[in-house]
Simulated assay, not measured.
Amino acid sequence: MPQTLDAIDAKILDLIQKDAALSVAEIADRVGLSSSPCWRRIKRMEEAGIIEGRVTLLDRDALGLGFEVVASVKLALPSKENLHRFEQLVRKWPEVLECMTVTGAVDYVIRITTTDMHAYDSFLREKLLGSGLVSDVQSRIVINVAKRTTALPLGLISDYVPAS
């Protein structure tokens, strides 16, 4: 069951999901609190698991990792054991940024980033198909990203008013 958040909690979350480098004093100032109560709210949301962690987002193109593929993966035999084995493997592959179990004709959709087509081909042959678990992969090369965000739609939380 979701935690109950008030409008100030939602404003704090909105601020830190957009810029995790903000200090508690900056956050407190923007939401109209002093630092101590703001820090306590953040700590409470961390302890409740609402705030899972804080990360720095990197520019994949600047790092030479701009080749992105969304792949639909069908397992040869989608048993409970094979699903578990595949998920364990995927967690070890740094090229896989996301892996989702989905409904429909395939078992998983995975998002992969790498340096180029040749590196993806190696990943496909050696890891995905080499696992012995996969019967089919449909790869879609990402040409352009119209929107990419890590920010959750906090406007869906009742009583939420965006922080300015």
Rank of each mutant, 00 (worst) to 15 (best):
D14S: 14
K11E: 08
D136F: 15
S79K: 03
I112F: 04
L65M: 15
A7R: 13
R91S: 15
I12L: 00
E68K: 15
P153S: 12
I157A: 11
A28G: 08
M117W: 10
A25P: 02
A7G: 14
A119G: 03
E52Q: 15
E26R: 04
A48H: 05
L65W: 09
P153H: 12
I16K: 01
E52T: 15
S139Y: 06
S35E: 15
K92A: 10
G53S: 08
A71Y: 04
L152C: 08
L156Q: 15
V55Q: 13
M45T: 12
E126V: 07
G155P: 03
V73E: 02
L156T: 11
D136N: 15
M117L: 14
V69I: 14
I141S: 06
D121V: 06
G104H: 03
S23Q: 03
L65R: 15
V109A: 04
L154I: 02
A25R: 14
G49V: 10
I51W: 14
C99A: 15
P162N: 04
F67T: 10
V55A: 09
S72W: 11
G53N: 07
L63I: 05
E87C: 03
V109S: 08
L156H: 15
E26W: 00
L129D: 07
T150D: 04
L13R: 00
I12F: 00
A62Y: 07
A10T: 13
L89I: 03
R91K: 15
L63N: 04
L89C: 08
C99R: 06
Q17K: 06
K80T: 06
L57Y: 06
L89R: 09
D6G: 09
K18Y: 05
L77K: 07
R148E: 13
D6H: 13
T4N: 09
E46D: 09
E52C: 04
N144D: 15
W39A: 15
L97E: 10
